[in-house]
Amino acid sequence: MLLMLDLNDPRPLHEQVTAAIRRAIAGGEVAPGDRLPPARDLAGALGVNANTVLRSLRALRDEGLLEFRRGRGVSVLRRPDPREALRDRARGLLEEAAKYGLGPDEVADLIKELS
């Protein structure tokens, strides 16, 4: 499993690691039932602290994507639902738009202009 982080990304590292693992699962690099490498190995490959990776793994477990088993490591339970992920991002976009005084209809118009 090849994971990459963008050093110019302003998001906290744990969020970047979470997103990278989620993309690997969604993209089929790891399938449901597959075990992930140990957190220390992932941390070493990414150049981050093991606690950062553990925080990301716990977040993905809380989303229902991963399963922790004592003595067996971390396994993939299911692939993420793309609509669910996009719904979260759309919610964030609407919140950001509201800060600029734009409503949902105006955001929809902007999206239609882009497509």
Rank of each mutant, 00 (worst) to 15 (best):
R72W: 10
D109H: 04
R72M: 10
G103S: 01
F68N: 11
M1G: 11
R55H: 10
D105N: 04
G103Q: 09
D109Q: 12
P37S: 07
E63D: 15
D105I: 04
V53T: 10
L42M: 15
L54F: 11
N49A: 06
P12V: 03
D34C: 11
N8H: 05
E63F: 00
G92P: 02
M4P: 04
A85E: 14
E113Q: 13
R40A: 09
E84F: 13
E84R: 14
E95V: 00
L65V: 07
G71K: 12
G44N: 14
Y100G: 11
R40C: 01
R79S: 15
R83P: 08
A90N: 02
R89V: 14
F68L: 11
N51F: 06
D88H: 03
S75F: 09
R70C: 06
N49C: 05
M4Y: 12
L2P: 10
L66G: 14
L93E: 06
A97Y: 07
A31P: 03
P104N: 08
E15T: 00
R55E: 14
L57T: 09
G92L: 01
E106A: 10
R87T: 13
V30P: 10
A39M: 07
D105V: 07
R89T: 06
L2G: 03
T52H: 14
G92T: 00
R22M: 03
P37C: 02
R78N: 07
L5G: 14
M1L: 13
R91K: 08
N51S: 09
V74W: 14
L93V: 11
V30N: 08
V17F: 01
R35G: 05
A108P: 00
D109K: 10
A45W: 04
R89Q: 04
A19T: 09
P10T: 06
G73L: 14
R11W: 09
P10F: 05
D9Y: 05
L65A: 07
V53E: 13
G28L: 12
G64A: 11
V17Y: 05
A45L: 12
D105M: 05
L5R: 14
L3R: 01
D62S: 12
R40S: 02
R72P: 08
A50Y: 12
L65Q: 09
R89A: 01
A31E: 03
H14N: 11
E113A: 12
E96Q: 08
P37R: 01
E95P: 02
D6T: 13
R70S: 08
P10M: 04
P38I: 09
A20W: 07
I25N: 13
R91T: 08
R91D: 08
H14V: 09
S75M: 11
A39W: 13
R22I: 00
P82H: 00
